[in-house]
Write a protein that binds this DNA or RNA. Structure first.
Length: 683
RNA sequence: GCCGGCAUAGCUCAGUGGCAGAGCAACUGCCUUGUAAGCAGUAGGUCCUCGGUUCAAAUCCGAGUGCCGGCUCCA
């Protein structure tokens, strides 16, 4: 007998040669069914691996996040098997699990057919067939000399059977690397398929029934553009059909909510070939944009920020001083002056400039100039200088994406200047500030990451230690969970990033807080302290929305463009039953407009049903229908987008009653009194 | 920047070498409309741009531009 210990500290006696399956079965049959792999002495291993006396064993089940990665890695093997059957010329390279699934990179020698999405159906069919056959995943370790290892030799034979050179050079490169590092080679086999692999895997292919191929893209061998071009086939896998279906539903839902499509349908913004990557905001998009700005401004005012405006174009010399020229050149736009030739007015020549200018990619240098414009005292600290700063950044072609990645965007940027011992309080203030803002949009799922000193960095150890400690103290002091990204900070200081999860479970990086000891130094910033001495202030860069454009894209998708009343570009649409009631409709419209609502009176010659449909497609929160009854009674008939009961029809009321009801939801974060009332009734 | 795909009416798309098309939207008229699409008619085109092949190009070929999916995750 051997004894192994479990995470709860208990010890189990098992017969000699027992493995993870036996352990799980010894505990309970349901655990045996749910177990995917074992973690033996902190290392992941197949359940089939024999246990030794004294091992610390943790059984990892379907519910553990690690299990999903194992499942998907196994699914990558299954997919590779299926693809090789259908595309015998393909050569395998690597196939890891990723965030939402897995991929396998394949090399298709010249002249051979490549995988396209049209092939997904038959590949999936093949995978289903292999899954049903329930082949065990069997591990083989190469213990002795690889040259004499039977499995390894057979693998080489199989792997190279159709490759022109006889062998798959990608796998060969991997094998060479593993041997060079002195690590052991290991292989996994299911059915006839063998692949070089570290493991572990699910027990058998029967686990891999809920698999779906998603897309295909290009990639390079080892992410090196000078190396071979590979075809990357992506898929995803789940333990249950329900989870897979839910995942596919979310992908479909995300497609439907694509802000680029909704932005066009709702006439919010557009893009044009004449300015690639630069959004044009239309009337309605501008309303949303301005509401976001107004809301942010109200908070900045409340919290004593000084809002400023800086020029768009500044001397190139300034960008040398700030370090952007050295570190950010590729992302900057530069101006080029031209002149008409005096001799020949048709001829245009470039002007050679003694002081060339550049378009700002960041707002900080402007704020630094404002700071240094006069002597500063610690008494005005913390000094918070904010700007709705429009910045321009060149992006490589191919990375632009709707409002999410543009070449000109507006940051709700601010720089806090303070003393070192004010850092902690400022950070805590900002964390509360950011969370307050996100909560207004229903974005309560906020993940915080702390990035620490990178290898390449400036500043003394003491300063860095103190800065990181201040960030940690601030986070710990608020009892906030956070992930640490070691060495991922900016070269001038550590930072805290805010990642927000939307209703479709997608994560977006929005806010950022960065400590900076470098820029104030470079610009010679000083303040006079209580002791009368001059010191260099600490600078904190921060942006809460991040980019207004990007944030707008996020909330369009988060709300599926069903904006809450305060953000809705069109808040009320008035539908007269026929042209006999146009005057009354105009009168009601004027009253609501006088109260500050954004109202559209629909005077087109169309049926009521048609106009209601139009308002619904445009996602207008409230529709008012007026006809003979309402005109005689001096009332309106209300229909609400967000009320499900009775098709959203709420009924007759006066304008005054309506205004009183919607007052709350006209403020950021406010909720509909109609929806709330219903919730109370139901609850 | 790199790989792959796409570009036809305002929008969504059909047309694959031989007359430029549909639905929706727009406009006009009729209907006097009561809670998600009334009826009829009219108009709308540099088939992305440039070059090539061909008797003939929206269609085939090349280049450019823009858009879309990826290009960080190293068995």
């Amino acid at each position: 007998m051997i004894s192994v210990s479990l995470p709860d500290g208990s010890v189990r006696e098992l017969p000699e040669g027992s493995n993870g399956f036996d352990l799980a079965g010894d505990i309970s049959p349901s655990l045996k069914k749910a177990s995917v792999i074992a973690e033996i002495n902190g290392r992941q291993a197949d359940l089939s691996r024999p246990l030794q006396g004294g091992d610390q064993v943790r059984l990892i089940t379907k519910r553990d996040p690690e299990a999903l990665e194992v499942l998907r890695h196994s699914a990558a093997h299954l997919m590779a098997d299926a693809i090789l059957r259908l595309f015998p010329k393909a050569q395998l390279t690597i196939g890891p699990p990723v965030e939402d699934g897995f991929y396998y990179d394949l090399y298709f020698p010249e002249g051979s057919d490549s995988v396209t999405p049209d092939d997904f159906g038959r590949i999936e069919q093949e995978m289903q067939r292999i899954a049903k056959e329930k082949h065990r995943f069997q591990r083989h370790d190469v213990d002795g000399e690889p040259a004499t290892d039977e499995v390894f030799q057979r693998y080489r034979a199989i792997d190279g059977k159709d490759a022109s050179g006889g062998l798959n050079k990608f796998k060969q490169e991997l094998v060479d690397g593993i041997l060079e590092r002195g690590e052991g080679l290991s292989f996994y086999r299911h059915g006839d398929f063998v692949d070089l692999c570290r493991g572990p895997h699910v027990p058998d292919t029967g686990w891999l029934k809920n698999v779906k191929l998603t897309h295909v893209s290009g990639a390079y061998w080892r992410a090196d553009a000078s190396r071979e071009q590979l075809v990357r086939v992506y898929g995803t896998a789940f333990f249950s059909k329900e989870e897979l279906d839910e995942h596919l539903r979310l992908i479909e839902e995300a497609k439907k909510r694509d802000h680029r499509v909704l932005g066009e349908q709702l006439d919010l913004f557009s893009f044009h070939d004449e300015a690639p990557g630069f959004p044009f905001f239309h009337r309605k998009g501008t309303i949303v944009f301005n509401e976001l700005v107004d809301f942010m401004r109200s908070l900045l005012r409340r919290d004593g920020y000084e809002e400023v405006r800086c020029p768009q174009i500044l001397s190139e010399e300034l960008w040398h001083r700030s370090g952007h020229y050295d570190n950010y050149l590729e992302n900057m736009f530069f101006t080029k002056l031209k002149l008409r030739s005096e001799k020949n007015p048709d001829e245009v020549v470039d002007v050679s400039e003694e002081r060339p200018m550049a378009v700002k990619p960041m707002n900080c240098p402007g704020h630094l100039l404002i700071y240094s414009e006069r002597p500063r005292s610690h008494n005005e600290f913390p000094l918070r200088i904010g700007e709705m700063g429009l910045v321009h950044r060149r992006e490589m072609s191919g990375v632009r994406h709707g409002l999410f990645r543009v070449q000109a965007f507006t940051q709700d940027d601010a720089h806090h200047f303070c003393t070192p011992d004010q850092i902690e309080a400022e950070i805590q203030f900002l964390i509360d500030f950011f969370k307050e803002v996100y909560a207004v949009f229903g974005l309560d799922d906020v993940r915080i990451e702390l990035s620490t000193r990178p290898e390449k960095s400036i500043g003394s150890d003491e300063v860095w230690e103190e800065a990181e400690a201040a960030l940690r103290r601030a986070l710990d002091g608020k009892g906030i969970d956070y992930v640490v990204n070691e060495g991922d900070g900016a070269f001038y200081g550590p930072k805290i990033d805010f990642h927000i999860r939307d209703v479709l479970k997608r994560s977006w990086q929005c806010g950022t807080i960065q400590l900076d000891f470098s820029m104030p130094e470079r610009f010679g910033l000083k303040y006079v302290a209580a002791d009368g001495e001059r010191y260099t202030p600490v600078m904190i860069h921060r942006a809460c929305y991040g980019s207004l454009e990007r944030f707008m894209g996020i909330i369009i998708e988060n709300y599926a463009a069903r904006f809450p009343l305060w953000l809705a570009p069109e808040q009320v649409q008035i539908v007269p039953v026929s042209d006999r009631f146009f005057d009354y409709a105009r009168k009601v419209g004027a009253e609501l407009r006088a109260a500050g609502l954004r109202v559209h009176v629909d005077l087109r010659d169309d049926r009521v049903g048609y106009k209601i449909r139009q308002a619904s497609l445009q996602k207008v929160p409230y529709v008012i229908v007026v006809g003979e009854k309402e005109q005689d009674a001096g009332t309106i008939n209300l229909r609400a987008r967000d009320v499900e009961a009775n098709n959203g029809e709420i009924g007759e009321m006066t304008v005054a009653e309506l205004l009183a009801k919607v007052e709350g939801e006209r403020r950021p974060g406010g909720v509909s009194a109609f929806v709330e009332a219903r919730a109370v009734e139901v609850g």
